[in-house]
Simulated scan of single mutants.
Amino acid sequence: MDAHFLGIAELTEVPSVAVVVDVMRAFTVAAWAFAQGAEQIVLAESLDDALALKARHPDWVALKDGPPAPGFEMVNSPGLLRSADLTGRTVVQKTTAGTVGALAVKDASLVLCASFVVAEATARLLRTRECDHVTFVVTGEDGQAEEDLACAQYIAGRADGVGADAAGFLRRAADSRAAAELTEGVRQGVHPDDVALCLELDRFPFAMVAALEESLMVLRPWTV
């Protein structure tokens, strides 16, 4: 498999297959939302768009980065989300990096959103689809986020059938700037278990596929 690892700003053309990686925390949170029963996740362009979608669909659940805010029921934290009952609900998600990255490649023929908790399922889907050319979008820190790059490289190896030892990749993520900021309370809207939950390899058996549906970028779980 020909794999390329790019930051959002480095995307100069539409890739055929894109894997958008946000470990801490957007696509760990998305996986938890599906595990808690969510039917779909709508990726919003902005906070205002998220609130507008919520206004049109009062039964939808809006979620954002940072501290709680009016109109948003939840924040972007797996530790805070894991006790929520989202059975049959639609979640509207807007984050700093992950949702931005997914929307940047919305015209790709296949868009997967990934983190360590869905790594093997993501790699399996790439193998099943026989994807020869894959662009991994490293969303955090202008493409320099070590946790996202480590996860992307791990998934790329697994998609190639390489029996890579996950420990080193997880260690890189644990030692990342994002992990430190979450642990030290630099970021808001954080649960003490967030970093540990983001480093749970293959917690869930599904991949997450995003596609345009009536002008909205919609994320759904996909069991291979």
Rank of each mutant, 00 (worst) to 15 (best):
E141C: 06
C131F: 10
H57T: 11
D48R: 14
T223H: 13
A196H: 02
V29F: 09
E10W: 05
G163L: 08
V117Q: 01
D175T: 08
V209N: 05
E13H: 12
A102T: 05
Y154V: 03
A26L: 10
W60M: 07
A196T: 15
A33I: 00
R89I: 06
Q36A: 07
A196V: 07
G37H: 04
E213D: 14
M24F: 07
V186Y: 11
C151P: 03
H191E: 01
E39P: 04
G101I: 08
S115I: 07
A174D: 12
R203Q: 06
A211Q: 13
A55S: 11
A26Y: 02
D142Q: 15
L63F: 07
V190W: 00
P192C: 14
R172C: 13
G189F: 04
K64Y: 01
E73Q: 15
A31I: 03
L201Q: 06
V29I: 06
L47T: 10
V75F: 04
H133L: 10
L170Y: 00
T223N: 11
G185P: 09
D165V: 12
A167S: 15
L103G: 12
V61E: 04
D22M: 04
A196Y: 03
A159P: 07
G189S: 09
L126K: 14
A52F: 04
G37C: 07
A156Q: 06
L182S: 04
R124A: 15
V21L: 08
